[in-house]
Simulated assay, not measured.
Amino acid sequence: MHQKDRLIRIMKVLQSQSAPIAAEDLARVVGAPEPLLAEDIRVLVRRKIPVHGDAERGYLLEQAREAFTLTLTLDEMEAALMGAVWAVERGDPTVATAARMVVAKLARHLPEELRPVILESERQAVAKLPTYDGRMMRQALRTRAKVRMRYRGLKGEVTSRIVWPLVIAHADEVRVLVAWCELREGFRHFTLDQIEAIDVLDARYPTRRDKLLADWREYQERTGHRANV
Rank of each mutant, 00 (worst) to 15 (best):
E78T: 15
E78K: 12
A79P: 05
A79H: 03
A80S: 07
A80G: 02
A80V: 01
A80W: 06
L81N: 04
L81E: 02
A84R: 10
V85L: 11
W86I: 11
A87P: 01
V88C: 10
R90I: 04
R90H: 11
R90T: 14
G91T: 01
T94V: 07
A96I: 00
A98T: 08
A98S: 12
A98M: 13
A98E: 11
A99E: 00
R100A: 03
V103T: 12
V103M: 04
A104K: 11
A104S: 14
A104I: 03
K105W: 05
L106V: 04
L106T: 06
A107C: 09
H109S: 05
L110C: 06
P111E: 01
P111Q: 04
E112S: 13
E112A: 06
E113C: 08
E113M: 01
E113T: 07
E113S: 08
P116L: 00
I118A: 11
I118E: 10
E120D: 13
E120Q: 06
S121F: 14
E122G: 05
R123Q: 13
R123P: 08
R123V: 06
V126Q: 12
A127Y: 13
K128M: 05
K128V: 09
P130Q: 07
T131D: 14
Y132R: 14
Y132L: 07
D133C: 00
D133Q: 02
M136E: 15
M137V: 09
Q139Y: 08
Q139C: 13
L141V: 02
R142N: 07
R142T: 02
R142A: 10
T143I: 05
T143E: 15
T143H: 13
T143A: 15
A145W: 05
K146P: 04
K146Y: 04
R148S: 07
R148Q: 12
R148T: 01
M149Q: 11
M149I: 00
R150L: 05
R150S: 12
Y151R: 02
Y151V: 04
R152G: 06
R152V: 10
R152H: 06
G153K: 12
G153R: 01
L154H: 10
L154F: 09
E157A: 15
V158F: 08
T159F: 10
S160R: 14
R161E: 02
W164A: 15
P165N: 03
P165K: 02
P165G: 08
P165F: 02
L166E: 09
L166R: 03
I168F: 07
A169S: 13
H170N: 15
H170E: 14
A171T: 11
A171W: 13
E173I: 06
R175W: 08
V176K: 06
L177V: 02
L177P: 04
V178K: 13
A179W: 00
W180D: 02
W180V: 10
W180Y: 11
E182T: 09
R184S: 06
E185W: 04
G186I: 03
G186W: 05
G186P: 06
R188E: 11
H189K: 11
F190N: 10
F190A: 10
T191P: 09
T191Y: 12
Q194H: 13
Q194G: 10
I195F: 13
I195D: 00
E196M: 12
E196Q: 11
I198G: 03
V200C: 07
L201F: 09
A203H: 04
R204Q: 14
Y205P: 03
Y205W: 05
T207L: 01
R208A: 08
R208E: 11
D210H: 09
D210Y: 02
D210M: 08
D210K: 14
D210R: 15
L212G: 02
L213F: 01
